[in-house]
Design a protein around this nucleic acid. Structure first.
Length: 607
RNA sequence: CGGGGCGUAGCGCAGUUUGGCUAGCGCGUUGGACUGGGGGUCCAAAGGUCGGAGGUUCAAGUCCUCUCGCCCCGACCA
C-alpha cells in the first residue's frame, strides 16, 4: 500500500480528552477518531489492526472446533425477561421501543439468543457437545465510558457458547477454550495473566479471566509472588487475621456524643482514632422472601411472564447487616455468593432509619441481630480486641466495643465469613498478597444450566431422559486487545506493535525524490508484496524526519530506509522498531533479509 | 446519578477576572521558493454561528438564565 493513497491522519499534539497512552496513541497514529462519548470510528489503519486480531481469533476458534454464526444485535426484551436479566443488567442494557411499541434490546451479549437457538435445534445427546461463536458488535450503555476503547459503549466481541450433555463434557470444552485463549493471546503478542474470577451476573460455577497487567487497567489482580495464586480482587480470598490480644481488661461500652459525624474519616478525626479500629456497619437489602414479619414494599422487580413488557411489581426483601473493619471494603461478589446469588443493594435512608433508629452514619452492631434478617461479620472484625462503632442512635457512637462480648459472633442469623476485599498486607494460604492493575481481555465461564433451564434448552439423553443442556461461555474483547497491546508496547516516539496485529509488517521509507531512490524502493516493495509481506511504502514527498516520526508513531515493526548515500554504496538499511540502530544490507539481499526478519518475528509469537 | 472541570479555526491553546476598535497565537491545510537522514526555513493565502437558545447593555467571546456536549473523580461496570 502506498502511504500517499491511504488515510493516515497522524497528529503531533496529544488530544485533550485522552488520558491513557493507548487512547492518545490510537488518536495520534490515526487509527481511530471519536464520534461521541464511547463511540469510535476505526480508520483504515485501525481497522487493519482489528481485522488482524479477528483473523487470529477466528482461526483459533475454528481450530478448536467451534462453529461461527451471526446473531442479531436487536433482540426482543421478552427473551431477557425469561432469564430475569432485563433487570439484572439494568441500565447498562441499551433499549429502544419500535414503532409497534415493542421493546427491543441492543445486544450486550447473547446467552439468551444462543440458548433459544439451541433450544429449538438441539434435541438429542447425539448433537452434543457443540460450540457456537460469533464476532459482532455489543452494546453497553455504560455509566461512564472512558479510557478510549477500553470502556466504550459499543465494541466488538467474540462470544462463544458451548452446550453439553453433562458437566464432564463442559469441563473438557472449558479446558479446550482455556488453552485456545492462551494461544490467541500469545499470537497477539500479549503478556497475559490468568486469574480466577467470579462469574458475576453471568452466573455459573467457575470462571477465569485473561488480563493484561498495566497501570491503566480497571481490574485489580491479586496474586502471590510465587505465582501459586492469582485472582481478580472480586474473587480473591484472604486468610483470617490473627486475633488481637487483649491484655488489659476492657471497660464496658461507653456512649460518646458525635454530632453530625457520620463518615469513618469524620469519626476518626473527631475521636482521634483510626479506621482500622472502627467497626463499619452497612445495611443492605436483598431480594428474597423471609420471615413472616417482613413486608413487601417499595422495591420493584420486573414481571417475567406474559406478553407484557417489564412492569414493576412489589417484592419481598430482607435486610442484611454487614460488619467490616473501618479500613476494609465489602466485596459485593462475595456478598452475592453468600446470599445465594441474590444481588444486594445498600439500603435507602428510610430503611436504615427503620432498622437502626438513627440517621445514616450511626449504625452499629450492638443489638442489631434482633433487628435485621441476617448479620454477616467479616472475620477481620472478630479478630479485633476492641473497636469503635455506631450507637444506633443519631449523633452517637460507642467506644470499647468488644466483638463477642457486646454483640454475638454466632447465632441463627449470624454468619462469620470472608466478605471483604483483600488489602495490602493480607495473606492467602500464608503467602503475602500482591496487587496490580490489569485489563480484562477475555473471560471463560462455566454456566451450568442457569440459562438452559430458564429458556427450556433440553435434550434427550441415551436413556431417553429429558435434561437441560449444561453450558459454558467464552468472551474476548477484540478492541481491548489492540488497546492493551498498545498500553504494553509504546515509548516516547509512539506505538510498538507486535507484528501479528500491526497494521503493516514493514514500512519502506525512501529519503528523497530522486529516481534511483524511488526505483530501489519500488523494487523492494514489489518483492516484499510477492513474498506475502504486508508493506507500507511511504511514497510521500516529505522530508525524512517526518517519515521517521510517522513510522515510529505507527509502530510498524520493521523499517527499511532507502537513502541517497547508502544507495550509492549499493545498500539500504533495515531497522526494527524495538531497536535503536539499523543494519546495512545490500539492495540485492534487501527483500530476502527482510523476509527472514519478518518470519523470525512472526515465529516468536507462535504458541 | 452525585462532585469537579472544560467548550474560541481541523488539532492544541490565549483572550472571559475588570464588557469596548478589525477575536489572536502555535501546529496543520492550500499555493510558491529554497531545502531534503529525525516533525526545516521564508513568502502568500484560505479557514470562526467564540457549543446552542434567551436575556441585560449604547456595546457581549467576556455579565445573567436555561440548555446541549465533552473530560475527570465517585457511586459494585460479564
Amino acid at each position: 500500500m502506498r502511504y500517499s493513497r491511504m488515510l493516515i491522519p497522524t497528529v503531533k499534539e496529544v488530544p485533550a480528552d485522552a488520558e491513557i497512552p493507548s487512547h492518545q496513541l490510537m488518536i495520534r497514529a490515526g487509527l481511530m477518531r471519536k464520534l461521541a462519548s464511547g463511540t469510535y470510528t476505526y480508520l483504515p489503519l485501525g481497522f487493519r489492526c482489528l481485522q488482524k486480531v479477528i483473523n487470529i481469533v477466528r482461526q483459533e476458534m475454528n481450530k478448536a472446533g467451534a462453529q461461527e454464526i451471526l446473531m442479531p444485535s436487536v433482540q426482543p426484551i421478552e427473551l431477557w425477561q425469561q432469564t430475569g436479566r432485563d433487570v439484572a443488567y439494568g441500565q447498562t442494557m441499551a433499549k429502544f421501543t419500535d414503532r409497534h411499541g415493542r421493546q427491543n434490546v441492543l445486544a450486550p451479549t447473547a446467552e439468551e439468543v444462543v440458548t433459544s437457538v439451541a433450544a429449538n435445534e438441539i434435541n438429542s445427546y447425539k448433537q452434543l457437545p457443540i460450540n457456537l461463536y460469533q464476532i459482532s458488535f455489543k452494546f453497553r450503555d455504560e455509566f461512564r465510558p472512558r479510557f478510549g476503547v477500553l470502556r466504550s459503549r459499543e465494541f466488538i466481541m467474540k462470544d462463544a457458547y458451548s452446550f453439553h450433555a453433562d458437566q464432564k463434557s463442559l469441563d473438557e470444552t472449558y479446558k479446550v477454550m482455556y488453552d485456545t485463549y492462551c494461544r490467541i493471546f500469545k499470537r497477539c503478542g500479549l503478556d497475559y495473566v490468568i486469574v480466577e474470577a467470579e462469574a458475576g451476573e453471568m452466573g455459573g460455577s467457575g470462571s477465569h479471566q485473561f488480563t493484561i497487567p498495566c497501570p491503566s487497567g480497571e481490574d485489580i489482580i491479586v496474586y502471590t509472588e510465587d505465582g501459586s495464586y492469582a485472582a481478580n480482587i472480586e474473587k480473591a480470598s484472604v486468610d483470617p487475621l490473627p486475633k488481637e490480644k487483649s491484655d488489659a481488661k476492657i471497660p464496658p461500652i461507653q456512649e460518646v456524643h458525635t454530632p453530625n459525624v457520620g463518615s469513618i474519616e469524620a469519626v476518626c478525626s473527631f475521636l482521634k482514632t483510626q479506621p482500622k479500629d472502627m467497626i463499619k456497619t452497612l445495611i443492605y437489602t436483598v431480594p428474597g422472601v423471609i420471615s413472616e414479619s417482613k413486608k413487601s414494599i417499595g422495591k420493584e422487580l420486573a414481571k417475567h411472564s406474559g406478553d407484557k413488557v417489564t412492569v414493576g411489581e412489589p417484592i419481598a426483601y430482607q435486610e442484611v447487616a454487614v460488619l467490616v473493619r473501618g479500613d476494609h471494603d465489602v466485596n459485593s461478589e462475595k456478598f452475592t455468593l453468600i446470599m445465594g446469588g441474590e444481588h444486594a443493594e445498600l439500603a435507602d435512608e428510610q430503611t436504615i432509619k427503620e432498622v437502626t433508629n438513627a440517621k445514616v452514619g450511626f449504625a452499629g452492631p450492638i443489638g442489631l441481630a434482633d433487628k435485621v434478617d441476617k448479620v454477616i461479620i467479616d472475620h477481620a472484625v472478630t479478630a479485633m480486641a476492641v473497636g469503635v462503632a455506631g450507637a444506633n442512635k443519631t449523633d452517637y457512637h460507642v467506644r470499647n466495643v468488644v466483638p463477642g462480648r457486646d454483640f454475638p459472633l454466632e447465632g441463627q442469623n449470624v454468619i462469620v465469613t470472608d466478605i471483604r476485599n483483600a488489602v495490602e498486607g493480607d495473606t492467602y494460604r500464608g503467602k503475602k498478597l500482591l496487587f496490580k492493575h490489569g485489563i480484562e481481555v477475555g473471560q471463560v465461564f462455566k454456566l451450568g444450566t442457569k440459562y438452559s433451564s430458564k429458556i427450556g434448552c433440553k435434550f434427550l439423553d441415551e436413556n431417553g431422559q429429558e435434561k437441560n443442556c449444561t453450558m459454558g461461555c467464552y468472551g474476548i474483547g477484540i478492541n481491548r486487545i489492540i488497546a492493551s497491546a498498545i498500553e504494553a508496547g509504546n515509548d516516547k516516539d509512539g506505538i510498538i506493535f507486535p507484528i501479528s496485529i500491526a497494521p503493516f509488517e514493514v514500512i519502506i521509507t525512501p529519503l528523497g525524490v530522486e529516481s534511483e531512490i524511488t526505483q530501489v524502493a519500488e523494487k523492494i516493495y514489489e518483492q516484499l508484496n510477492r513474498a506475502g509481506i504486508e508493506c507500507l511504502w511511504d511514497d510521500r514527498d516529505v522530508r525524512g524526519g517526518v517519515k521517521f516520526k510517522d513510522a515510529d508513531l505507527l509502530g510498524i515493526p520493521v523499517r527499511i530506509t532507502i537513502g541517497k548515500k547508502s544507495v550509492a554504496e549499493g545498500n539500504i538499511e533495515i531497522k526494527l522498531r524495538t531497536e535503536p540502530n539499523s543494519q546495512k544490507v545490500s539492495i540485492e539481499q534487501a527483500a530476502d533479509k527482510t523476509c527472514e526478519l519478518v518470519n523470525s518475528l512472526r515465529e516468536k509469537l507462535n504458541p
